[in-house]
Design a protein around this nucleic acid. Structure first.
Lengths: 226, 226
DNA sequence: AGAAAAAGAGAGCACTGCTCTTGACGTGCT
DNA sequence: AGCACGTCAAGAGCAGTGCTCTCTTTTTCT
């Protein structure tokens, strides 16, 4: 059944298709990714590609998983490289690493964090790679053991977060600190998306400086110290 | 030239097309909006619609401007309704009003804040309606005259923001307060987008409670008081 | 009522995702 | 060696898209 040679050829072919699709996504965006065009660039018939990917969405899913893993690796590398540094610096470094990746991989960023593709539901396989980024935030924030402060007036009511699921990924922060970690990641995402998607043109002159200070400001609120 | 009757018919027709397109966008998303389908629903030929919109992007732009104005009106209404209330409550109310609009107009929200459409540049006409939302934030934050605090370590270097352009919209906040207002709007956007685009599934159980507390937390950092 | 202007219809081009059939190739088993 | 099987590529074809062109109908204005 599983002859070694064909298996190998098949894997190589799949990798080649994905690589080609990646460059097309980078050039014209994910929405207009066309199997025919991939085939044309590879000097093949479009129908041939359907042997490797049953439909366009499966190819898209493969790209999404790869993007999550790529960004996740960058985030984790930043966290690893900043061990021993002050917690606030670690947070800023992590955010900046994510920002750099996003800036040089705009379309892949849009692919995973942009508008969901209609009639496309992210399969199970994407949630594990997707968790690597918030996990990286937890690694820097969790190392700081910040002083407990209420999250919003009166603190967060129990039942707001799914603490059972979160503790697996984010470790043993208390609920309010966990909430604030999620808020920081959301805010970093918001800043980054506004910058990348052009909502800052005309207001923010130096996007990097603004970004660094904004993230640091959030970190200070969280209780991190330089 | 400008005959009164034809002008009127034309405006009515354009409105009808936009309305039809809006419902299609709400049903299947902006990416798959097709002029042919709009025509089909209106029991017309697709080519007839080209008399009113020279291409699909122009129709899309019209929908974008409408969405900005719709959301802007909601935001301004919230600001007007909360005059005299404590600043922190005003901020939370504004954020919640935006959230409600976003939840019941998912696809229009995605249209204006989601992944930019490839090969589509937002024309001049969109920036004025787009400014209404940050302007609404400024109206609530500006009324509070929060105590000055550095934005990030050492405060924001001059030249980071385009203060000339911002002061027109956001009024006379000092640079650090202006930066923090931008940060709050970015964060609200980030929270909202994560919720709407499904990045909170499995971690945030009660999205509204989390959202309210997160916004309030940001407001407290800004210096607002309840 | 008749001329002018606007709107609509329909065919057509080039493109898309996707399916189905047909023929060729390489591999492994007898 | 020969045969059968699984894999692969090609091509035709369906239904859909944006958009343009020409031609006809309707509406409006004088």
């Amino acid at each position: 059944m599983a002859s070694p040679k064909v298996e190998q050829n098949r894997a190589a072919k799949i990798a080649a298709i994905k690589q080609q699709a990646r460059t097309l996504v980078a050039e014209r965006g994910a929405a207009s990714l066309s199997l025919r065009e991939v085939a044309r660039v590879m000097e093949q018939t479009s129908s041939a590609l359907y042997r490797y990917f049953p439909n366009r969405d499966v190819l898209l899913t493969a790209l999404i998983v790869d993007a999550y893993n790529d960004l996740g690796a960058v985030a984790e590398a930043s966290v690893a490289a900043s061990i021993g540094h002050p917690p606030l610096d670690r947070l800023v470094a992590l955010a900046c690493a994510i920002r750099e990746w996003a800036r040089s991989n705009m379309h892949e960023y849009a692919l995973i964090f942009g508008t969901p593709i209609p009639n496309y539901v992210a399969p199970e396989a994407t949630i594990a790679p997707a968790a690597r980024i918030p996990c990286a935030f937890a690694a820097t924030l969790g190392s700081a053991t910040p002083p407990h402060r209420d999250f919003g007036p009166g603190g967060l009511p129990s039942g707001t977060l799914d603490l059972d699921a979160l503790s697996v990924v984010l470790g043993d922060l208390d609920p309010d600190a966990t909430a604030r970690a999620l808020l920081i990641w959301s805010s970093v995402f918001g800043l980054l998306t506004f910058e990348l998607f052009g909502h800052f043109v005309g207001s923010v002159e130096n996007a990097e400086t603004f970004f660094r200070h904004a993230v640091a400001d959030l970190g200070i609120q969280f209780g991190l110290e330089a």
